Structure formats: structure tokens, C-alpha cells
Computed example of a mutant assay.
Amino acid sequence: MIYIDNTKLDKPNQKWLDKAAILLQKLEEAVSIEERNQIIDKNHRIWKLLKDSLKKLSHGKCWYSETKNVYSHPHIDHFRPKKRSEDIFDKKNPLKDGYWWLTFDITNYRLCGSVGNVKKGDHFAVKYNRVLQPGPISDEVYYFLDPTVKEDVKLLNFDNNGTIKPSAPEALEKWDYERAKYTIEYLDLNYPDLQEARRLKWQETTIIIKEVNRLNSIFNNEPTNQNKNKKESEKNKLRAMLSPKQELTSTVRSCLRASGEDWAYKLLEE
């Protein structure tokens, strides 16, 4: 998962905004859930018009998997489900009305590969202050990690097998751990092809780290400009892998941190 500053999303043109306002009014005036859902279904192309703008924010990568193709072609995910919402932790009433008033709200859009979007479906568990009707949503305490929240992105980590897991230990940070576990499960973030892609990226990164360490040792014994340039050349490969345009940079970062090398931490701070 990568942090996305969605305040930088290109503003839709006035025609789109006017259409969204008209449709929101129709949703508000609908006399039944069925009528609302029909309006949503008939106008599903509206949010798809913004896909290119969402892709621009992430250089074409899915915001959750940080890949372009492994997790399949991107959908626009309504972070808060539009027609109905399923809360697995509410045993008495797991199915609830959706956040229909956010259907045409661009702040509710996330770019998600089809694998994750299909798995996510209507799932949206809320621990406290669930909003059941149009109104402020800022007080909701929800389970899904959100790529538009910088601190949420930090709650996931990776290992050398390409497995994604909570970065927080369950015993010390139970709520963060639970949110990470929920997100991994209901976005299928350990989807086999995706996990394999991360494993290969970790392997590629490890090979370069070992080469940098080898060249560091040579440079320390013989500090020539030639040896220094060889070492920097390998580091530059890692810098390139950390570029926002590249896939799976979070995996590269995790691998560098796991190396325990001081130079790797400094490279991450650049």
C-alpha cells in the first residue's frame, strides 16, 4: 500500500460536477432503497470518467497493491460502499445501508486492482460511530487501512517470502494489528501472484544489498574513486527502485530496513 495525497487529484470539469450534483439530488429524493440503487447502477460510468486522474496520482499503480498488472486492471473502489455495507463484527445486523450520498464524491474514490475490489465488495467494518445517514463521517473509527492516510500505510510490512503482514505486534498495538489483518484479508493482499511478485522484488533487492556490502568492504580497504563509484552505482540501482514511478517500492523499503545496514537507513532517509 502506498500513500496517496488525494488533495492533489485533478478537479473534475464543471460538467462532471454539475452531473454529480444532479444525481446526488436524485438520490436524496428517492423514495426507496431500490430506487436509489437503480440510480447508482444506471450512472456507474460517471466515476469511471475520473480513472485517468486517479491513475495519475500513483503513476498507474493500484493504491493498495502498488502494482499495475499483477493485481489485474484497476477499478475505482468506493472506499465506503455505496449501496450496502457489510460489517462482519456486527453479528446481529451485519448488512446495513451503504453510504449512498458518497457515490459521486471524489474523496471516496480509491484506485484498486480488480482482485482486491472484487474481494472487498461491500465489506466495511466500523468499530465506533458508524454513520447511517448523510452527515459528517470524520468520527467513524473503521477497520480498513486507507491509502490516503499517511499513518495507515505504515501499519503494513513484508517479509522475504513476499508475505504482507501487520507491522505492529498484536500484544502491544492491538487495534492497529486488527486493522492491518482485516485489510490484508478483505483486499486479498496475499493474492498468490502478488505475493510472488513481492518475493522476487525482495530477492532482487537483497542481491543488490549484498553487492553494496561487498563493495563497501573493498572501498574501506582501498578508498579509491573507482571503488567509490562502483559502490554508488549499486546504490543508484536501489534509488531507482524506490522511485514513485516504480512498482512495489514498499517491499524494497522493507527489505532495506530488514538488512539492518546503516547505509540502507540513510538511503531511505534521502
Rank of each mutant, 00 (worst) to 15 (best):
D10M: 01
Q14V: 07
K15L: 11
K15E: 14
D18M: 02
L27A: 13
E29M: 02
E29T: 09
E29C: 00
A30F: 02
E35F: 01
R36L: 02
N43D: 13
K48W: 03
L54Y: 07
L54N: 03
K55F: 02
S58E: 05
H59A: 00
G60S: 01
K68P: 02
K68G: 01
I76F: 11
H78A: 10
K83D: 09
E86P: 00
F89S: 04
W101R: 06
W101E: 09
G116I: 10
D122P: 00
F124C: 09
Y128H: 06
Y128T: 10
G135R: 09
G135E: 11
E140C: 03
L145Q: 10
P147N: 09
P147L: 12
A168S: 13
A168T: 13
A171Q: 10
E173M: 05
K174E: 11
W175D: 13
Y177P: 01
A180Q: 04
Y182Q: 09
Y186F: 15
Q195H: 00
E196I: 01
R199F: 11
W202L: 00
E204A: 15
S217H: 12
I218M: 08
N220S: 13
S233K: 14
E234W: 02
N236M: 06
L238N: 08
A240R: 08
T249H: 07
G260E: 03
G260P: 06
D262P: 01
K266A: 10
E270Y: 10
